[in-house]
């Protein structure tokens, strides 16, 4: 059973076809990577999966339910959590409060006017923070966190509604190599323990080839390759995209 089935997704901005007829599926408990050079359409594709951008045409089904047409908040309630490339957290709240906020929303307690929010779902929030190794920093102001810690906090927030699919946009960008390794191991653990399926974009090739079960490669809006890390590595078109290829054009007046 596929967790997510994407079919014939298209999106244009002005005259530019940012995403052009992309189809793929995310298997249950799969760790699927989406890679490609800058401007390949990864971000646009990614943002359509949680309703942030609406596609021009195409369909995205989460365990059979259509997502296209739903705003991000609805997609989240359907069970798709996400992290952002540039971390988006609530800077005026503590680490703990950030997670509590997500839990309050998950339990539909947003309209409560009387109780103190700080006292709600503390244990659950703490458990989530513990899961991502942030328990010791629960009381800190979010604005003072190191970048790698913000990424882990985002992961805890994304896990608050027990998502079935997790979208991670550049999860290790701005992290030290050791931290990257830790974060990807943690992600793999979560996939195993909670039965979550993960789609992530990433530019660190060590992370991609070291951790993904399968890799999708996009270039100029189109999906050009999909397969196991070994298959993708052996694909000449992918190599041409990443290194460029002399065959693509005649070197006239080359230096």
């Amino acid at each position: 059973m596929s967790a997510l089935v994407v079919e014939a997704l298209c999106k244009s901005f002005g005259g530019l076809r940012a995403v052009d007829d992309v189809s793929f599926s995310l298997g249950e408990t799969e760790l699927l990577a989406l890679i490609g050079p800058n401007g390949a359409g990864k971000s646009t594709c990614f943002n359509m999966l949680n309703g942030q951008i609406q596609p021009d045409v195409g369909s995205i089904r989460l365990y059979g339910d259509e997502i296209v047409g739903c705003p991000p908040r609805t997609v989240w309630r359907m069970g798709v959590g996400r992290t952002f490339q540039i971390t988006a957290t609530f800077s005026s709240m503590t680490v703990m409060e950030n997670v509590q906020m997500a839990l309050l929303s998950h339990h539909r307690r947003l309209r409560a006017l009387l109780p103190f929010a700080g006292g709600q779902y503390r244990d659950e929030a703490m458990a989530l923070l513990d899961r991502v190794g942030m328990a010791s920093q629960a009381g800190r102001a979010c604005g003072t966190l190191a970048y790698g810690d913000l990424k882990r906090l985002e992961l805890a927030i994304a896990l608050a509604n027990e998502p079935r699919v997790l979208l991670m946009d550049e999860p290790t960008a701005g992290m030290a190599p050791r931290e990257r390794l830790q974060l990807m191991r943690l992600t793999a653990d979560i996939v195993r323990d909670k039965g979550v399926s993960v789609l992530f974009t990433e530019h660190d090739m060590d992370v991609v080839f070291g951790h993904a079960d399968r890799i999708l490669v996009m270039n100029r809006g189109r999906l050009v390759a999909a397969g196991s890390p070994a298959e993708v590595r052996a694909n000449t078109e992918v190599q041409a995209i990443y290194l460029g290829s002399g065959a693509l054009y005649a070197p006239e007046g080359a230096a």
Partner: peptide
């Protein structure tokens, strides 16, 4: 900064020619 990014091969070729002309 990345002048060839996201451009079709034919355009990349024109770009390379133009950059070489600039260099000359």
């Amino acid at each position: 900064d990345e002048p060839s990014e996201g451009l079709a091969p034919r355009i990349v070729e024109q770009m390379a020619n133009a950059l070489n002309a600039m260099k000359r």
